[in-house]
Nucleic acid binder design. Structure first.
Length: 418
RNA sequence: GGAGAGGUGGCCGAGCGGCCGAAGGCGCUCGCCUGCUAAGCGAGUAGGGGGUGUUGAACCUCCUCGAGGGUUCAAAUCCCUCCCUCUCCGCCA
């Protein structure tokens, strides 16, 4: 959630940010509501202070004086209760709207509302030219017996896959490759819970906005996370760091679950868009002054990781209207997918500034008192899509796949074959 | 799943209707002292909201002793519900 100071003192800046995202909110009305709720709370507190003052004197009084003090305090207590109720109601009314507002938009985020409005920042490598009829990952994987989406449909429905044999080993290799690399850059590996309480999703900004994308376990009031960003961010909820402890960086490995509501008919082939996949996610807690450089740092890690896999890719600056509620700025890395003849997202890194920290109450002791940290996240390796990119880009004429040198120490083989 | 115990400040731990946002200890910070270190002495040390106000001073006030309700003029203290932790038993990767 955004600092309320923007509503009170920098309203035009806030309005401009919301407009860039295509969000329509009546800020004047919100500001009125804000001052109303503050006035209401002030009135309630004044009454309460009087009530407490009389209350304190009661034990030292006796007789009629005592009785009339109790009566007076009782009357004030009733008034307080009424005033408090309306102050609470106003707070709730205000928060209902305020917490749905997306983060302030970084001025350097690309303009536009759609995915297509993203601006290419750079590109690396060149798409492969095949001297033969290239296959897509489903054909390659099925023929090698390492990928089975048909039986997955039988067992679990559409948008699932079985990963088998050597391809499963490639997953483990990718994860270990990624972890080794990130540990060398100060990240602590984490395997977080994938079932979380509602508060973790609310705190990270996925609730209430994106609730329809999240699997729920109603019997136990738990939710399956769509990314380990959720449990890792919430890991330090309600904590106050010493500034000497920052930055703190985690590399979380988890399965991710996504309902993919509203994507019917989109990316239906293979395991490009599935309900369940594994991912290594970077997550940083930093001081506010450091968040921009940290964002660059995370992007650099993503680039080095994908370069190590010898995949052609480009980096795009995501458009303001496509950022999601918590990101102020976001870069996507899009790898080349030969079967689609275009670049598609494989990783993404967001600077969520203090948006999640404010919701989760994650602070640090700064020189001017406690303030909110900034949080950032970035995909290190999204296993499913990376497996596809590896297969499709490094396929050989006989339907086998070359394993890039960086992975061979982890796979123990240099060719994905039967 | 069954039986019991308990959740208080960074940590340990007292308090069981008002003088308690909370004794004491540890830790930490600052200062003093001892020519290092250890020890010692003094002071400080929870978070958040609102108001007056400065612009990164101060003051006033409210809330918070697991969470949410309730009783009372007054709740860390009494009552209810929930959550969590620990111990024992059972089951289990």
């Amino acid at each position: 959630m955004i600092d309320i100071a923007y509503l009170r003192d920098h309203r035009s800046e806030l309005a401009a940010s919301l407009e860039r995202r295509g969000v329509d909110v009546d800020l004047d009305e919100l500001a009125n509501l804000d001052s109303q709720r503050r006035r209401s709370r002030f009135e309630a507190e004044e009454i309460r202070a009087k009530q407490k003052e009389i209350g304190k004197s009661i034990s030292s009084l006796s007789g009629d004086a005592k009785q009339s003090a109790i009566a007076a305090a009782g009357e004030l207590a009733d008034r307080y209760k009424t005033l408090l109720t309306s102050a609470d109601a106003l707070d709730e009314e205000f928060n209902t709207t305020w917490t749905t507002l997306p983060n302030l938009t970084d001025p350097s985020a690309a303009d536009g509302l759609e995915e297509e409005d993203a601006i290419e920042v750079s590109s690396h490598g060149t798409p492969p030219e095949f001297a033969f009829e290239a296959k897509d990952h489903v054909e390659l994987g099925s023929a090698l017996g390492v990928l089975d989406v048909e039986r997955a449909a039988k067992v679990s429905g559409s948008r699932f896959g079985f990963i088998l044999g050597k391809l499963a080993i490639v997953e483990f290799a990718l994860v270990r490759y990624t972890m080794d690399y990130l540990m060398g850059h100060g990240f602590t590996p984490v395997i977080p819970p994938v079932l979380v309480r509602e508060s973790a999703l609310y705190g990270t900004g996925f609730f209430p906005g994106d609730a329809e994308q999240v699997y729920s376990i109603p019997d136990d009031d738990l939710y399956l996370v769509g990314t380990s960003e959720v449990p890792i961010a919430a890991f330090h909820g309600d904590e106050i760091f010493e500034s000497s402890e920052l930055p703190i960086r985690y590399a979380g490995y988890s399965t991710c679950f996504r309902r993919e509501a509203g994507t019917y008919g989109k990316d239906t082939r293979g395991i490009f868009r599935v309900h369940q996949f594994d991912k290594v996610e970077m997550f940083s807690f930093v001081e506010p002054e450091a968040s921009q450089s940290e964002h660059d740092f995370l992007l650099a890690r993503e680039e080095e990781l994908i370069q190590g896999l010898e995949l052609p890719y480009r980096v795009v600056n995501v458009a303001a209207g496509d950022l999601g509620s918590s990101a102020a700025k976001k870069y996507d890395i899009e790898a080349w997918f030969p079967s689609q003849n275009r670049y598609r997202e494989v990783t993404s890194t967001s600077n969520t500034t203090d948006y999640q920290a404010r919701r989760l109450k994650i602070r640090y002791r700064g020189e001017s008192g406690n303030q909110f940290v900034h949080t950032l996240n970035g995909t290190a390796t999204a296993v499913g899509r990376t497996l596809i990119a590896l297969m499709e880009n490094h396929q050989l004429e006989d339907g086998t796949v070359r394993i890039p040198d960086a992975l061979v120490p982890y796979t123990g083989f240099d060719l994905l074959d039967r």
